[in-house]
């Protein structure tokens, strides 16, 4: 590799770096949502959970000085949001999609309300691992400066993939998700399993929010999320409820999100705002390409309302 600048190579490098940086919230939200959806319920409210998690993590990190305590607090808050969602959905005639929309608005409102006083102070950031030390190029060094949460997310994806297939808990989750009746016949209570799966999904989503406020972009404000929580729901469908698929899809989305800034850095400014739409267009295109009006999706949990 020559030292004489990297020219247009900067674009794919910036996209790769962006993919790693931007994808972490997607990874956590989609892993959480894949657990919830595997149990046969959909939580559309993760956008609210994500933003509330971002606020909680930031506030706790400011007050205690420890970003990790912030992450823990966000997980607890996210679990509470998931418990509320799961508890409400337990009642007959309640629509889980509508409740998700309501919880999203509630979570956003509450986060903006409680987070008002934390817009000014600066919180300590989460640490990252400099994996690019072997290179002399500052671009590569910064691109491979990988946050700990990204690594944890990657490991979690593999762990969940393994657990879905090979553990008792994974089997219970899949049975409940495929057929409430079969689960009841096995002596399982589907509502309880879904309640716990939604709570776990909420706490994962809140970690995604903590990454936003404590690492990248690394501040708390009311525009912190640009729909990551919602796109992650679409992403889970694309990934066919497979955790490793979720991880790869999250990288793809992160890369799409980094396209605009990367092109701008090499002087392409035409249609800059259109590149902001890239992740959404990509999501929509993937949904269109992978959905079908006549059959339910391959690998879809049977009890999931969204695929019917």
């Amino acid at each position: 590799m020559e030292d004489t600048g990297i020219g247009l190579w900067g674009v794919p490098l910036a996209i790769l770096a962006g993919a790693i940086r931007v994808s972490t919230p997607f990874i956590f939200v989609s892993l959480g949502e894949s657990m919830t959806e595997r149990s046969g319920r959909i939580n559309l409210g993760l956008e609210g959970t994500l933003v509330f998690g971002a606020m909680t993590a930031y506030a706790v990190a400011v007050m205690t000085g420890s970003p990790w305590l912030g992450v823990l607090a966000a997980m607890a808050a996210g679990a509470v949001f998931g418990l509320i969602h799961g508890w409400i959905c337990k009642f007959p005639k309640v629509n889980d999609i509508a409740i998700g929309i309501a919880m999203m608005q509630f979570g956003l409102g509450l986060a903006f309300f409680l987070g008002k006083s934390f817009i000014q102070p600066v919180a300590p950031r989460l640490p990252s691992i400099p994996l690019g030390g072997w290179s002399d190029l500052p671009q590569i060094q910064s691109a491979l400066n990988i946050n700990v949460l990204f690594v944890i997310g990657a490991l979690l994806a593999v762990a969940l993939w393994w657990a879905f297939r090979n553990t008792r808990v994974g089997l219970i989750l899949r049975v409940v998700g495929d057929s409430s009746d079969a689960a009841r016949a096995m002596g399982l209570n589907p509502d309880t399993v879904r309640l716990l799966a939604t709570a776990a999904g909420g706490s994962f989503a809140a970690v995604g929010g903590a990454y936003l406020s404590l690492y990248y972009p690394g501040s708390w404000n009311e525009g912190i999320s640009s729909g990551q929580g919602l796109m992650a729901v679409a992403l889970v469908i694309f990934a066919r409820w497979n955790p490793i698929g979720c991880f790869l899809a999250a990288l793809l989305f992160g890369g799409a999100g980094a396209l605009g800034p990367a092109l701008q850095s090499v002087g392409v400014t035409q249609g800059y705002y259109l590149f902001y739409a890239a992740p959404y267009v990509l999501t929509l295109a993937i949904l269109v390409a992978t959905s079908s009006p006549t059959r339910s999706l391959a690998g879809a949990p049977g009890a999931l309302s969204i695929t019917k």
Binding site: Y273, A277, V281
Partner: peptide
């Protein structure tokens, strides 16, 4: 196409805002 309308309409909203900014 059997695409979930809730998610599709919301994605379209984000695309619309990007188009407006453009």
């Amino acid at each position: 196409r059997g695409v979930n309308e809730t998610i599709a309409s919301l994605l379209l909203a984000y695309i619309a805002i990007a188009l407006m900014n453009h």
